[in-house]
């Protein structure tokens, strides 16, 4: 029976990253299509505490590997730890959410398993031994249907395309295993977290994004975000200029978001930006230029100065309460 192994991810604060549950949801879909069984893995210094949280999501088993050397995530130590588990389980499919960690780790793990890999998978098609993967290319201008022909198939998952697994689906067996520990040629030095009281960009129901049109003044963007309980996003131009932290970049080479509402202010709508937000349910564009390409994907557009529109919008929204 085909075995699908999904790797869970802990944030630096120890909590499970929400995208893990989207990945588990995807893993369940894949297991159903392939006629197989879903397993989940979690490794770290002391992952046992959160492993229990993974029990009720439809997996046959949750595999937990603890080792002091796995305190800080490093591709070099996590890949061997997970590769031995995948080999012991004879996993046919190994996947993880397309987070920064997923993108760093999975190709290294795939190389170790001599597996071909598909990045940012959006859907599985076909069935049985012939499951194929749908993934974006050229900044989402092309959807490709790809087949991996190696015995083990590795992938990362675009979390916005899969609904999160729901809890309460029986209790998976929690099994511990001893991860293979290899000396690493890389040392973790530090992690400087960008702390924010706002929701995480990829998880927020509403995102308010600013572009070069803000000229670096994000006060009104942030005020509107706070009015809406929204996350703040940005275009590449804004991150390059150092106006906001890099990890707020939405797009082909940044974060992919699909909130219920995406508000783009002073963003022209370059294809690379659209690649990261086109799947949002409702898109609002605020731009001075009536010809800006962002209007081609916006459900509602306003041709006006963002510095006038944003405060007014905030005041109008306040009236709804």
């Amino acid at each position: 029976m085909p075995i699908v192994l999904i790797i869970a991810e802990q944030q630096p604060d120890g909590h499970l990253r929400k995208a893990t549950f989207n990945a588990i949801g995807a893993g369940k879909q894949l297991a159903d299509k392939a006629g197989g069984e879903l397993h989940v893995a979690l490794v770290g210094k002391d992952p046992g505490k959160v492993a229990d949280e993974l029990k009720g999501y439809g997996a046959k088993a949750v595999h937990v590997g603890a080792a002091p050397e796995l305190e800080h995530y490093l591709a070099e130590t996590y890949a061997p730890a997970l590769a031995t588990l995948a080999q012991e389980l004879k996993a046919d499919y190994v996947g993880m959410a397309s987070t920064a960690q997923g993108k760093d780790l999975m190709p290294r793990l795939a190389a170790r398993l001599r597996a071909a890999m598909a990045t940012d998978v959006m859907a599985f098609n076909g069935g049985g031994a012939d499951v194929t993967f749908s993934r974006p290319m050229w900044a989402g201008n092309v959807f490709a249907e790809v087949k991996l022909t190696t015995p083990v198939k590795v992938f990362t998952l675009r979390a916005t395309e899969f609904t999160a697994a729901q809890g309460g689906q029986g209790a998976a067996e929690v099994k511990t295993f001893t991860p293979k520990v290899e000396a690493s040629k890389t040392k973790f030095v530090d992690f400087k977290e960008v702390k924010s009281a706002r929701p995480e960009l990829t998880e927020a129901r509403v995102v308010v994004s600013g572009g070069r049109g803000t000229k670096g003044d994000f006060k009104e963007i942030e005020a509107l975000a706070d009015e809406l309980g929204a996350a703040v996003g940005a275009s590449r131009a804004v991150c390059d200029a150092g106006w906001v932290p890099n990890d707020l970049q939405v797009g082909q080479t940044g974060k992919v978001v699909a909130p219920a509402l995406y508000i783009a202010a002073g963003i022209s709508g370059a294809i690379q930006h659209l690649a990261g937000m086109k799947s949002s349910k409702t898109i609002v564009a605020i731009n001075k230029d009536p010809e800006a390409p962002i209007f081609q994907v916006a459900d509602y557009g306003i041709v006006a100065d963002l510095f006038k529109v944003l405060p007014e919008l905030r005041a109008e929204l306040g009236k709804l309460k």
Binding site: A116, A118, T132, P136, M137, G140, N141, V142, F143, A144, E145, V146, K147, L148, T149, T150, K278, I283, V284, P290, F295, Q296, V297, A298, D299, Y300, G301, I302, V303, V309, E312, L313, E316
Partner: peptide
């Protein structure tokens, strides 16, 4: 070991409307 079986254009997003002012939005 990767075969690209088929490429297709992503589903197009319908262009929406422009609204006159903030209350309309």
């Amino acid at each position: 070991a990767i075969q690209v079986l088929k490429m297709s254009a992503p589903p197009a997003r319908k262009a929406g409307i422009k609204v006159a002012d903030v209350p309309a939005l």
